[in-house]
Measured scan of single mutants.
Amino acid sequence: EVYKVKIKIERVLPNGEKVEEEITIEVEGMSEEELLALARELAAEPGVRIKEIEIEKLPP
């Protein structure tokens, strides 16, 4: 199964400015739980906050 994972994050820059970013990846052969863990890892940097995680199962 192939999933499209869209992660919206908010990053706080050293000057205090907040910037929103969106990361989209396609992943194959992982469960939804593994995808959530991967998304959290991607956003685990200091000053980064996850705003939204969207997981979509793509048709075969």
Rank of each mutant, 00 (worst) to 15 (best):
57 K>W: 13
15 N>T: 12
17 E>I: 13
48 V>T: 08
25 I>W: 13
26 E>N: 06
15 N>H: 04
51 K>F: 12
44 A>Q: 06
16 G>P: 00
36 L>D: 04
44 A>T: 09
25 I>V: 07
9 I>V: 10
57 K>C: 04
10 E>L: 07
26 E>R: 10
47 G>W: 04
37 A>L: 11
19 V>L: 07
58 L>R: 11
46 P>R: 15
10 E>H: 03
30 M>K: 08
35 L>S: 08
37 A>G: 12
37 A>K: 13
40 R>F: 06
22 E>F: 07
58 L>A: 09
45 E>T: 15
45 E>N: 07
39 A>Y: 14
6 K>P: 00
53 I>R: 00
16 G>F: 03
3 Y>V: 03
46 P>K: 10
28 E>Q: 07
60 P>Y: 01
43 A>L: 07
60 P>S: 12
13 L>K: 09
11 R>Q: 01
7 I>M: 12
56 E>T: 14
19 V>G: 03
9 I>E: 00
5 V>Y: 09
37 A>M: 10
45 E>A: 12
29 G>R: 06
3 Y>M: 03
32 E>D: 09
18 K>P: 05
2 V>C: 04
15 N>Y: 04
30 M>Q: 09
13 L>N: 04
8 K>Y: 15
56 E>H: 15
16 G>S: 02
50 I>K: 00
18 K>L: 11
40 R>S: 05
23 I>M: 14
3 Y>F: 07
20 E>V: 08
38 L>S: 03
7 I>T: 01
6 K>A: 03
34 E>D: 07
19 V>E: 05
21 E>W: 15
23 I>N: 01
23 I>K: 03
51 K>E: 03
24 T>I: 11
16 G>E: 02
52 E>K: 08
26 E>H: 07
42 L>I: 06
40 R>G: 04
30 M>L: 07
7 I>A: 01
21 E>A: 08
10 E>K: 01
32 E>N: 14
7 I>W: 03
4 K>W: 07
32 E>I: 13
20 E>K: 03
60 P>M: 03
60 P>R: 02
27 V>F: 10
18 K>T: 12
2 V>I: 09
54 E>W: 13
47 G>D: 08
16 G>W: 02
2 V>M: 15
6 K>S: 07
39 A>P: 01
24 T>G: 03
47 G>M: 03
51 K>H: 04
6 K>C: 03
43 A>W: 08
8 K>M: 04
55 I>K: 02
47 G>C: 09
31 S>I: 07
3 Y>G: 01
30 M>C: 06
36 L>T: 05
25 I>M: 15
20 E>S: 06
28 E>S: 07
38 L>A: 03
15 N>K: 02
29 G>A: 11
50 I>V: 07
45 E>P: 05
19 V>A: 05
35 L>N: 01
6 K>M: 07
54 E>N: 15
25 I>F: 12
57 K>A: 06
34 E>G: 13
12 V>I: 08
56 E>Q: 14
31 S>M: 08
44 A>P: 04
22 E>A: 07
57 K>G: 07
5 V>P: 00
16 G>Q: 03
42 L>P: 01
55 I>T: 02
1 E>V: 14
25 I>N: 01
44 A>C: 05
39 A>F: 12
17 E>D: 10
3 Y>E: 00
40 R>W: 14
50 I>T: 01
6 K>N: 04
3 Y>P: 01
34 E>L: 13
21 E>D: 10
16 G>V: 00
40 R>A: 04
14 P>A: 12
8 K>C: 04
39 A>D: 00
57 K>E: 04
45 E>S: 15
29 G>N: 12
36 L>H: 04
41 E>C: 14
42 L>N: 02
41 E>W: 13
43 A>Q: 06
44 A>L: 13
31 S>E: 07
25 I>E: 01
43 A>E: 06
41 E>Q: 14
52 E>F: 14
37 A>I: 11
5 V>K: 00
36 L>I: 08
35 L>I: 13
57 K>S: 08
58 L>Q: 06
50 I>H: 00
32 E>H: 12
22 E>K: 04
60 P>E: 07
51 K>V: 14
59 P>E: 11
52 E>R: 13
58 L>D: 03
12 V>T: 15
36 L>E: 04
37 A>Y: 14
11 R>D: 00
37 A>N: 10
47 G>P: 01
16 G>Y: 02
54 E>S: 14
1 E>L: 14
51 K>Y: 12
35 L>F: 07
17 E>T: 14
8 K>F: 14
27 V>M: 12
3 Y>N: 01
54 E>H: 14
36 L>G: 04
53 I>L: 04
42 L>D: 00
17 E>R: 11
55 I>R: 03
42 L>E: 01
13 L>D: 03
20 E>Q: 13
27 V>Y: 08
5 V>A: 10
25 I>Q: 02
41 E>S: 14
7 I>C: 02
59 P>N: 12
8 K>L: 10
9 I>P: 00
24 T>C: 06
53 I>P: 00
18 K>M: 15
28 E>M: 12
14 P>K: 07
59 P>D: 04
38 L>D: 00
27 V>H: 05
49 R>K: 11
11 R>E: 00
